[in-house]
């Protein structure tokens, strides 16, 4: 059974979103996603200042097996890519919820408009996905 913390929001493409006190959000991939990918060996995060649209591919996680895109869950501007992951991609496997990939400042109204799931809904989504 995957680890799905109750205080985060989730996407159908297996990103998690955490709201930070300063109004920005932190984004990573879920425990389910890291498990499905296997050992990560390369993570490419976006540069600060990049404008992204919800659903846009903006980071890449590569395991030994394959490369996968990570999508912006919310329209906005990237405020930071996690610099730790260049040297330590395996941090995502070790703890998918502390190894954030990027921080983003949502555009006005974008957070409310984003298609995010609660932890309960994400768990149901995972169960349905098999």
């Amino acid at each position: 059974m995957s680890n799905v913390p109750a205080d985060l929001k989730y996407t159908r493409s297996h990103e998690w979103v955490k709201s930070l006190a300063d109004g920005t959000v932190e984004i990573g991939i879920t425990d389910h996603a890291q498990h499905a990918l296997g050992d990560l060996v390369f993570v490419e995060v976006p540069d600060a200042g990049r404008a992204v649209k919800a659903g846009e591919a903006c980071a890449v996680v590569e395991s030994v097996k394959a490369a996968s895109d990570v999508y912006a869950p919310i329209t906005g501007e990237i405020t930071a890519g996690n610099p730790q992951l260049a040297g330590e991609p395996e941090a995502v496997n070790a703890d998918a919820y502390s190894a954030w990939l990027m921080r983003l400042r949502p555009a006005p109204g974008a957070l409310a408009a984003a298609a995010l799931m609660s932890s309960a809904d994400y768990e149901k989504f995972l169960a349905a996905e098999g």
């Binding site: 296997g38 050992d39 060996v41 395991s63 030994v64 097996k65």
Partner: peptide, 11 residues
Amino acid sequence: PVQYSSQIGEH
């Protein structure tokens, strides 16, 4: 079987 626990570990 493509992997049991960790592909890199098995390697």
